[in-house]
């Protein structure tokens, strides 16, 4: 068991690398299988020392649901953005908004920021303040393309995206 841990320090990552290698080559020939296996072993060995331990998933089902919800929201958000882009510029109400965060760890804040960038008319700009400890409150600065109501936007992001992320991690 101990040697298994030593040779394959991160089994999930190894499996992922192996699959990505096969997808890149789009084939399951012996040579690709073999070389994929070598890479899946070698790369985790090389980068193991630099690894930052991330929190594990508490609830994979919720993560899957979150993924599909985000995919759907990307489609909806795009329709809205396209409508805004085609319409006249003077109807736009761009704004910077601060969204207070309840999340504290870096991984879930990163996922939230990426989601916010991909979905409803917003791009995340910054997590502020930069120089606080891990447990102090922070907020996400976002740029909104067309702001209707600030409180409503904050509410929406917190309910729709932050709450499920708190469930997952």
């Amino acid at each position: 068991m101990k040697s298994l841990k030593k040779w394959w320090p991160t089994p999930v990552r190894s499996l992922f690398l192996f699959l990505v290698w096969l997808l890149l080559n789009n084939s399951v020939e012996f040579f690709h299988l073999f070389f994929g296996l070598v890479l899946a072993w070698l790369i985790p060995q090389l980068i193991h020392k630099f690894r930052l331990i991330q929190p594990g998933m508490k609830n994979p089902g919720a993560a899957l649901r979150y993924g599909f919800m985000v995919l759907w929201d990307i489609v909806v958000a795009n329709m809205q953005v396209v409508k805004l882009v085609v319409g006249p510029n003077k109807n736009l109400k761009p704004a910077f908004v601060k969204i207070p965060l309840d999340l504290t760890d870096n991984l879930s804040i990163t996922i939230l920021a990426s989601t916010v960038s991909l979905t409803p008319g917003t791009v995340s700009a910054e997590v502020l303040p930069l120089d606080v400890g891990v447990d102090e409150p922070r907020y996400l600065l976002v740029h909104v393309l067309d702001l209707a109501d600030e409180a409503e936007l904050i509410q929406q992001v917190k309910q729709r995206y932050e709450a499920p992320l708190k469930e997952i991690f």
């Binding site: 990307i74 795009n78 953005v81 882009v85 510029n89 008319g121 791009v123 740029h143």
Partner: peptide, 25 residues
């Protein structure tokens, strides 16, 4: 349309919205 947004929108911050969303979809 995402590329069109780059030309048409008024400032840098709003122009960013085109390539991040429409182009992704």
């Amino acid at each position: 349309l995402g590329s069109f947004a780059l030309v048409k929108l008024p400032d840098f911050y709003t122009r960013l919205h085109g390539p991040t969303k429409a182009t992704t979809l």
